[in-house]
Design a protein around this nucleic acid. Sequence first.
DNA 1: GAGAAATGATTAACATGTTAAATTATGGTG
DNA 2: CACCATAATTTAACATGTTAATCATTTCTC
Lengths: 171, 171
Amino acid sequence: MSRKTDASLSQGAERRVPMRDFSRSLPMSLLRAREAVMRQFRPSLRNHGLTEQQWRILRALAAIEAVEVSELARMAFLLGPSLSRILRDLEARQLIERRTDPADQRRGVVSISAKGLKLMAAVAPTSEAIYAAITKRYGARKLAELQEMLAALEQSLSGMEQGAVADEEDA
Amino acid sequence: MSRKTDASLSQGAERRVPMRDFSRSLPMSLLRAREAVMRQFRPSLRNHGLTEQQWRILRALAAIEAVEVSELARMAFLLGPSLSRILRDLEARQLIERRTDPADQRRGVVSISAKGLKLMAAVAPTSEAIYAAITKRYGARKLAELQEMLAALEQSLSGMEQGAVADEEDA
DNA sequence: GAGAAATGATTAACATGTTAAATTATGGTG
DNA sequence: CACCATAATTTAACATGTTAATCATTTCTC
């Protein structure tokens, strides 16, 4: 690699670009909080051979008989391409089942399998226990309040069309 | 693909696994809120050829003369492997400069280049304007309160050792 | 001071995020 | 009915997330 061992960096360059304190930006706060939460769940999911996203899909499917792929994407908050790949994998592992809507052959319809339900039943207790521990630590009321504020944030931004602020391209 | 066209799914399987309403889980709330926020910034960053993570690194670097790679990872909240790849790319684009700490040849030291500062100066105004718009929409006070609650959540979870809840492996 | 243990960084391997393009199936229109 | 626009899904291509393994250097220890 091109790594100089001397100290010839651009020392003289004026270094200040006026911006908010980086570590306190909203995206960073949200990212750190989410990571702190997920760190609690990942080990258990991993023990059962599941990723966070795969688990989201199983949970979404457990609540219903069957759903179209697009609707599942919306429920699990995954983009189409990610979902496509994950469904391929989950189907190969026989955790879900898939058919085609006879009325519209473009649509795929997905449901959880008996094996998938069995896996869920194995994971759910630990997962619920972790969630309960988090709730206890943070406070149930405070947690509910946080969720409301997050939902409100989503709402606030839902109508913010992009491009409201001008911006040139780079070419 | 193995997609049955008939309707022979596992209809009889008992479908209920007792769990909280999925869409209201804390990780999902945090994910959605963060995505709603990032959706505002991504187009502008993209116009300048930057990803969210690359922008985080430049912002972290703009505040200081130079930092070690590990410290930069902590500041930008990136894992080592991600940071390694991104630094390789940013260095190739001459947006950053890199040397090796003479006192400890294991440590890499990174700083932003003049070109990197120039790019930041081009992106910052739009970025700040978007942030201001978000703040106005959601409310400055409410935003500050949200950040406090997120920080508190991090704090609450910081001492939660994993494995506090038993969990068997799958083999 | 030679060799083991530890540390900083990178690489490897696989899963997902993100945007664009391609595929296949519907539906409308002349 | 041929044609074209649209829609649902997948594939492609590249960037990052995540864990494990590797590599180089340093530090500890005898």
